[in-house]
């Protein structure tokens, strides 16, 4: 299985490089999708179906949104001679990281070996062994997410809600937009006090 995993990782790296380097936006988006689906296959191989399901579903939605978004975008041609300083710096940093990670890699547990075999008093052992008895949920991931670590899920709910609020603010507080709406309904004699109050905030171009 590690050979298959390595093959998938190499495939994902090639797809990621293609996504950056390709000229066509559609092929870049499709390469990004290849990275995501390869990652979900990796999760399945590592026996994490819960994460794989979430990954594949989010990947589909992101691909739909991106493909929908790039339909009307014309690609811009880049500069003739791109600046290579950042690339060289990145290669040096990644090489340094690889050299350092060689020293750390010996300390990692083997693939498939649970961490509480090495650390007997860790919280993961309690979650796995007594999760069903303590919460009544057969899926220990759900037991951890929504019972033991429920506060983290509450934080995720807050983040999602804040993202929704951010999108709504981004769209509705467009000053250009409200001036146009006011200018449209003004001459008809419609009551526009709400739009008129907002015109004073936004600066017309």
């Amino acid at each position: 299985m590690p050979e298959l995993l390595t093959l998938l990782l190499v495939f994902m790296i090639i797809a990621a490089i293609l996504a950056i380097e390709s000229e066509d936006l559609t092929s870049a988006v499709v390469s990004m999708g290849a990275v995501g689906f390869g990652l979900s296959v990796c999760f399945i191989l590592l026996r994490a179906p819960e994460v794989a399901l979430a990954q594949i579903v989010v990947e589909v939605v992101v691909l739909i949104v991106l493909l929908r978004g790039i339909v009307s975008v014309k690609p811009k041609t880049g500069p003739e001679k791109p600046d290579r300083t950042g690339l060289y710096l990145g290669v040096v940093l990644v090489g340094l990281l690889l050299v350092l990670s060689v020293y750390v890699a010996g300390e990692f547990p083997q693939l498939g070996e649970p961490s509480f075999a090495r650390f007997p008093d860790s919280a993961g052992e309690t979650y796995l062994k007594q999760g069903l008895a303590l919460t009544g949920a057969a899926n220990s991931v759900a037991a951890v997410l929504l019972d033991f670590r429920g506060l983290d899920s509450l934080g995720e709910v807050a983040v999602l809600f804040a993202a929704l609020l951010g999108v709504m603010l981004l769209v509705r507080k467009n000053p250009r937009l409200e001036i146009k709406v006011e200018a449209e309904s003004g001459p008809n004699g419609a009551p526009v006090e709400k739009g008129a109050a907002k015109v004073s905030e936004g600066e017309p171009k």
């Binding site: 939605v61 949104v65 929908r68 978004g69 919460t135 009544g136 949920a137 057969a138 759900a142 037991a143 929504l146 019972d147 429920g150 899920s153 709910v157 999602l160 809600f161 993202a163 929704l164 999108v167 709504m168 981004l170 769209v171």
Partner: peptide, 30 residues
């Protein structure tokens, strides 16, 4: 089984459904 874990799952599903759909509609509007 599981007490309020299925109910929390249901609330989370409705929240994700509504917010992803609203974000998609509004970004399409932009």
């Amino acid at each position: 089984s599981g007490g309020n874990i299925p109910l929390l799952n249901l609330a989370l599903a409705i929240l994700v459904l509504a917010s992803v759909f609203t974000a998609f509609v509004l970004l399409a509007a932009v």
